[in-house]
């Protein structure tokens, strides 16, 4: 089980760096269509910031910010966004994930609708990847024991 590190240097530096890392991850997600990156890479960077929080502040502090319930909600919310956009395209008489058909309900030209549709897909992928990366690291590091048992 990872203990929270009592070292003040590492704690302070990671507290300073984590918000900037998350901001950069949001930039990578939002600029996925014309620079390297996208939903998966941005999600991995978001997950890495949470992992940095976990190895610095320990599992109990991190669990206070990101509970098991919110990990489950985020991982399924991403899948819901992805498949929801796909099914809306099906309902508008297009193929699955045919973003051009979204122009009817968004009131934009089909080209802009394609760009917005890809952005929505990438936000969904980012949510799921972040939650799953954090969940994998947390479960492996705690050795299968839930953190409540560790306190006693």
């Amino acid at each position: 089980m990872i203990r929270s590190s009592e070292d003040i240097i590492i704690r302070t530096v990671s507290r300073i760096l984590v918000p900037f890392i998350q901001l950069f991850a949001l930039y990578v997600i939002a600029h996925g269509h014309y620079s390297p990156g996208g939903g998966f890479q941005g999600g991995v960077i978001l997950g890495a910031s949470l992992v940095l929080l976990l190895i610095t502040y320990g599992p109990s502090d991190t669990r206070r910010h990101i509970s098991g319930k919110s990990v489950a909600v985020f991982s399924s919310l991403g899948v819901l966004i992805y498949s929801g956009i796909g099914f809306i395209c099906l309902l508008l008489l297009g193929n699955y994930l045919d973003y051009g058909k979204l122009s009817g309900i968004l009131h934009v030209t089909p080209a802009e609708a394609r760009s917005l549709g890809i952005l929505g897909i990438e936000i969904g992928v980012g949510f799921t990847v972040m939650a799953i990366m954090f969940s994998i690291f947390f479960d492996i590091s705690s050795g299968g024991k839930p953190p409540e048992d560790e306190k006693e």
């Binding site: 070292d7 240097i9 590492i10 530096v13 760096l17 900037f20």
Partner: peptide, 16 residues
């Protein structure tokens, strides 16, 4: 700026 913050911290962590 990131390297100036992160590299000494990583060195400190390894040595400790």
């Amino acid at each position: 700026v990131f390297m100036a913050l992160a590299q000494p911290t990583a060195t400190h962590a390894i040595s400790k």
